[in-house]
């Protein structure tokens, strides 16, 4: 039975967008924590661990996210671990995000001039104080723009999880489009919702950069 695209469908899409947000948020937290580990392994002067981190980054950045999703969703059951779509999606997006966050944050950390470390040292600050009070605050400010840039990508990439049947904004649009045969208004509505989320993130980043006195 075909029905009209109605107000209730828009509500349904907005509700589905909560899963998009929740998935992006989970991947941000999970990928963020793992990303810190990746960034630290990249900078500590112990080669084998750096190589491990580099291999991790290359493996993840060099393969499509969709493939990674399929590996978790279809691959894990083969070794006896049954996972639902949410778990597979959250896991693979977190791992995906960790590689990008790791590189963004390593770059931000290393872009703070060596002279800032020296200036801190010359005032008698310990290594931890130099890192915590001088270098990290600057690195964090530098990292805001690229981090949010990646977050925007992450929000949009959650749409790939529709392909393993996770009902977020894109999958919900497919369902409604199938029921109403009105793909254009449905997907336009979905696009507006994605835009609102992503545009808000970018605006937030601009605001933070202004507020935190980013070094020029």
């Amino acid at each position: 039975m075909i029905r009209e695209f109605a107000g209730a469908d828009i509500i349904y899409l907005i509700e589905a967008a909560r899963w998009t947000l929740l998935l992006a948020l989970t991947a941000t937290v999970g990928g963020g924590l793992l990303g810190i580990v990746v960034a630290v392994l990249r900078v500590i002067p112990f080669r084998p661990l750096s190589w491990l981190a580099i291999a991790w980054i290359n493996l993840i950045q060099g393969t499509p996210l969709l493939g990674q999703l399929f590996v978790f969703f279809f691959g894990l059951p083969l070794v006896g671990l049954s996972v639902d779509a949410w778990t597979a999606a959250a896991l693979s997006l977190s791992i995906y995000a960790s590689a990008f966050f790791g590189e963004i944050w390593r770059g931000s950390l290393q872009s703070v001039s060596q002279r800032q470390w020296e200036a801190g040292a010359a005032l008698g600050l310990t290594y931890a104080q130099r890192l915590g009070h001088v270098v990290l605050p600057q690195a964090i400010r530098i990292s805001i723009a690229p981090t949010v840039g990646f977050l925007v990508q992450l929000v949009k990439n959650t749409s790939l999880t529709a392909l393993i049947g996770f009902v977020e904004l894109t999958r919900a649009s497919q369902i409604i489009s199938g029921a109403t045969f009105a793909p254009l208004p449905v997907y336009l509505t979905a696009a507006v919702i994605y835009f609102v989320i992503c545009f808000s993130l970018s605006q937030l980043a601009h605001m933070l950069e202004r507020r935190l006195h980013v070094a020029r």
């Binding site: 200036a119 010359a122 005032l123 600050l125 009070h133 001088v134 935190l212 006195h213």
Partner: peptide, 28 residues
Amino acid sequence: NLLRQRAGMVFQSYNLFPHLNVERNIML
């Protein structure tokens, strides 16, 4: 770190902390 409290150093490139204002540069 104790040595550097006794022997202050000023650099060619100033090296102030750009994220802190003058007062907090000194207070840190």
